[in-house]
Design a protein around this nucleic acid. Structure first.
Lengths: 155, 155
DNA sequence: GTTCGGTAGATGAGCTCTCAACGATTTCGT
DNA sequence: ACGAAATCGTTGAGAGCTCATCTACCGAAC
């Protein structure tokens, strides 16, 4: 049966709404700014950061996809586009005939090194500066907690 | 000059990363679930909610766009698609020859009334249930603070 | 009443994402 | 060794978003 949905109480709803609005506005602004000052999309940016920071410029396709938590299809299209613009390249994997490496090109390194400082500044201005040290720490903990909670669920 | 970017310290970076990952994963899952169990995208959902909850099923085009903080172009395309599927309709505005009303159709009402309880359940399972009452309250306050901070900036 | 700037909204091109299907290889069971 | 199943990654179609541009209308100034 369960005909009565358990609606959120007003405080829960207010918190959820604030969170959603904040998050949308923040992400929206940040990606518009990154796009504006580096010509890269937020997706380009995160791919290059992951590749250079965590993989030393070279990573297996699916590892990269898992790292940023994208579907492989999305990553594949993204890599195709970035390869077309010369930011990354595909390389064959000797160990596994199906596999591929994604490699950051010199142009890719240049792009990310140029974009990163501006990106950090935007993160500061939009987000970090709005909060006290304690609030930021708290938000980090809460985020991690939601993340852990989701890990336990399928999907 | 300013050749040295002010990088985030490790704690700030960790908090930012957690927040970003959490937010992406959460939004991703939620919209996939809404899509899966109602056939509506998150965008459809929020448009219908805004329209029915705040406008009594009928709102001026730009008011709706402002309410959800979308560009008018996005809203226009969205309304076109939703109109094609019969969820909303456009109506002329007698007072202003340029203007238009967006109206939720009966099918739109049915769709939102069917989707809303499921939506709430997903929000609970993914998010609310992960946090204590206090944490949720805190997150709400922090979100509002970031929001207020952004309001003060252009863009 | 005409002209001029501003506002309401639509539209088209191009890029990005999702979903489902596919080809190619590897791995596993027997 | 051989067929089945799983894994790696690509592709195409269709939906969605952004940006620039466009038309139609309003309101005020002259």
């Amino acid at each position: 049966m369960d005909a009565q949905p358990r609606w959120l109480d007003p405080e829960q709803k207010a918190a959820w709404d604030s969170f959603i609005r904040m998050q949308e506005k923040l992400i929206g602004r940040l990606s518009r700014r990154v796009q504006a000052d580096s010509g890269m999309s937020a997706a380009d940016y995160i791919v290059l950061v992951s590749l250079t920071e965590r993989g030393n410029g070279r990573m297996r396709f699916l590892d990269l996809a898992k790292l940023v938590e994208w579907e492989k299809s999305r990553m594949s299209h993204q890599v195709t586009r970035m390869a077309k613009r010369g930011l990354v390249a595909r390389e064959e994997c000797p160990d596994d005939g199906r596999g591929a490496f994604i490699v950051a090109t010199p142009a890719g390194y240049r792009a990310i090194e140029e974009a990163a400082p501006l990106h950090v500044e935007h993160v500061r201005h939009l987000f970090i500066d709005a909060l006290t040290t304690n609030q930021l720490r708290t938000l980090g903990r809460i985020s991690q907690r939601v993340l852990d909670h989701m890990e336990k669920q399928p999907d």
